[in-house]
């Protein structure tokens, strides 16, 4: 997942796009270490320190990674893995076409 995400961030630099993580690792220090080591430039929510964190629980997430694509208006447009690239391309174009 990391290489794919890094290339998305590169491809959409200066475009209306961001990755936002919700991280379930055990400590903030661990999260920061992973981000530095794997060169992850985008922000993540720190979900309390484990897979039982409040955000993942509230969103009913039971498998990791779980991915949603949300448009520039804040609407959920896709949940899944296989069509991420196509959805991002389409929604970024939509966002750029909107004045």
């Amino acid at each position: 997942m990391y290489p794919h995400e890094r290339s998305l961030v590169e491809d959409y630099a200066n475009k209306p796009f961001t990755i936002l993580g919700v991280n379930s690792d055990p400590t903030l220090a661990f999260l920061r270490e992973v981000m530095a080591e794997k060169d992850l430039s985008w922000p993540s929510f720190f979900d309390g320190g484990g897979t039982g964190g409040p955000i993942a629980t509230k969103w009913g997430v039971r498998g990791w990674p779980t991915v949603f694509v949300i448009d520039a208006e804040g609407v959920i447009r896709y949940r899944g893995r296989s069509e991420i690239d196509a959805w991002i391309e389409r929604l970024v174009a939509e966002a750029e076409a909107t004045p």
Binding site: P16, T18, I19, N23, D25, F30, T51, T66, V67, E73
Partner: peptide
């Protein structure tokens, strides 16, 4: 941080952990 801070951008919301 809030999700809505990123309104105006397409967001890939990724629930993840390094394991």
């Amino acid at each position: 941080m809030k999700l809505s801070d990123h309104r105006g951008k397409v967001v890939l919301l990724d629930f993840w952990g390094d394991w």
